[in-house]
Nucleic acid binder design. Structure first.
Lengths: 340, 340
DNA sequence: TTGTAGGCGTTATCAA
DNA sequence: TTGATAACGCCTACAA
């Protein structure tokens, strides 16, 4: 089968008794070559174990098969799932994924986009809608499908697959109020734009219900962790011992808060209701199971790739698409207060 | 500065008043061109905003700047940290990372390696030492630095950065015995080769201490999760209600077991000791904090890249290196049994 | 439907 | 130290 040295189009062509360009066409647009020739070519390809040389193709076309993906973190479970969806969707296609990590830094994001732009990518998938003006300029002027994921933008640079974190937070907060909690608080880490939008949702619902109080808000710009969730709850309890429920900006914090509550013998959900965000697997397994807001992480990744490939297939002629994939509040025992 | 169209070597050469190849040399081997020419070239590069075209370079040299990374999962936190180390180490260099996901399937691994091999990568980083014979053949014959990570191999195909999971499991198991536990059990998911090696370590220590019992072993090939940890502990307790400590193959299972113990009002560590593996952040935050074995995930990623780049710099003339990065048992309250 | 010529941007080779 | 020439493998444009 496959020899050791690289097989070229010319060698396949020689074996099949056609010209190189015919082999090229048989591979890329099987429809336009005759059935007979196609079969001969396919046989030769198999026999020689031919694999196209992407560098040569790129050099000739000026267009790569790389889908650039720009995310703020690769260790965060949320993005791990998104990336997983992206890789699954790309599998079996001719595309490759190139991952860029911004570390939540807009300027690093700008740098990554600059690099990607200069490489003529097949498509670009970027997390969030809070790019710098310079980043947005690049995205707007680049000649390939662009997809913003995670959130919904009123004014997207390209396609958009996500959900309203503001609405999601409103639902979660409303749930707390409905459960009868009246002194609700908020725990937030990192406080990136997405987090802040969730906080807005929480704040508005709490204010509308007349249960908002600044003293029950504990936030930090420190990156999120379970340990930090414990600390934030400790801080919150110091400031506002009467808090009876918390909306945590993510599940790590929620789990940390649960552990801290256990340490203090605070009964969850009776003395303290806890709601997380993202619905990572672990929170549904907790004791008590933690209420959270599921967001379709994996699907966002998959559909972003779909939009890229469709955009390429239609040669950029398809209109901008905004897909709201929604969210789902998953109420569990951690907020199941005994109703009087 | 940078115009919109791509600047080529020839344009830089024209502006600098030299030939293209001289510019090429001035960029790649500044040492061999005259000071004067070098300065002129540098000025021209800056003025035009020249960026080399990697595709053309690759086509001409037959050697890419891609470091291929083959891991079994991208959602698993363990590999997320490894990959994070890889990306951090690659940053600022001329290399790029290409991630391949085997989904714990040896045949998918083979396929990925086949693709990578055909792309003349700059280096290859593969997780584990349990490749198929065909995979090992490819790794052995490929003309670039190869690094196996996660484990130590007696007979590595290239470099090796990892630790002995067998030894690590022995330590953890010995710790349980030292704490006075006498009816120790094992919880294992997925049961891939690495997991099995950890089980061997556990088994041998337990047998040597005369505390091994088949009935206290609960394993499944199902992928690991926190929920699964709860189920496995439930299964274990059904088979062997007298178990007094468990070594969990990873932290997800350990956390799930802790939750299940809480549900059953089993006191940890007194009635049940729990030890995890990997030392993910969450286990140290748990209540009680869970004992685990830390492994240097991030460092393995970083050092693997170092070995690749060194191998390239030395043109493959450096000897095979095996780096044992070790592990660290982090004893916490979940195994701090009151000693009588 | 198939083929021919030329070029994509860079580097290796050989020569000056 | 610098330069001319010829690849590298594929694709676009045009021709047959």
């Amino acid at each position: 089968m496959a020899g050791n040295k690289r097989v070229t189009l010319a060698e396949v062509a020689a074996l099949a008794g056609v010209s190189a360009i015919t082999v090229s066409r048989a591979i890329r647009q099987p429809g336009i070559v005759s059935e007979k020739v196609k079969n001969r070519v396919e046989a030769a390809v198999r026999e020689l174990g031919y694999v196209p040389n992407p560098a040569a193709r790129l050099l000739a076309t000026g267009r790569s098969n790389v889908i650039g993906v720009v995310i703020p973190s690769i260790t965060n479970n949320v993005f791990a799932d998104v990336v997983s969806g992206i890789y699954d969707a790309v599998e079996g296609t001719d595309f490759e994924v190139q991952l860029g990590n911004t570390r939540y830094s807009p300027s690093q994001e700008e740098g990554l986009l600059r690099i990607f732009s200069s490489q003529r990518p097949a498509g670009l998938i970027v997390a969030g809608i809070d790019q710098t003006a310079a980043s947005l300029d690049m995205l707007a002027s680049i000649d390939c499908p662009v997809v913003q994921i995670m959130e919904l933008s009123a004014d997207p640079v390209g396609h958009c697959v996500g959900l309203s974190h503001y609405e999601a937070a409103r639902h979660a907060s409303a749930h707390l109020v409905e459960q009868g909690y009246r002194r609700v608080g908020f725990l937030g880490a990192r406080m990136d734009p997405r987090t802040q939008r969730r906080f807005s949702g929480f704040r508005e619902v709490a204010e509308a219900a007349g249960v908002f109080d600044e003293r029950r808000v504990c936030t930090t710009t420190t990156p999120s962790s379970v340990t930090l969730g414990s600390q934030l709850l400790a801080d919150l309890l110091a400031k506002a011992p009467d808090v009876d429920a918390i909306f945590c900006n993510n599940d790590d914090l929620a789990l940390g808060a649960l552990f801290e509550a256990q340490r203090r013998r605070l009964s969850v959900p009776d003395q303290l209701g806890i709601c997380g965000f993202n619905d990572l697997e672990m929170v549904s397994a907790a004791e008590p199971a933690i209420t959270s807001v599921f967001i379709p992480r994996y699907q966002m990744g998959r559909q972003a790739v779909d939009l890229v490939t469709q955009g390429i297939a239609s040669d950029g002629e398809n209109p901008t698409e905004i897909r709201d994939l929604g969210f789902e509040l998953r109420a569990r025992r951690s907020t199941a207060r005994k109703q009087d």
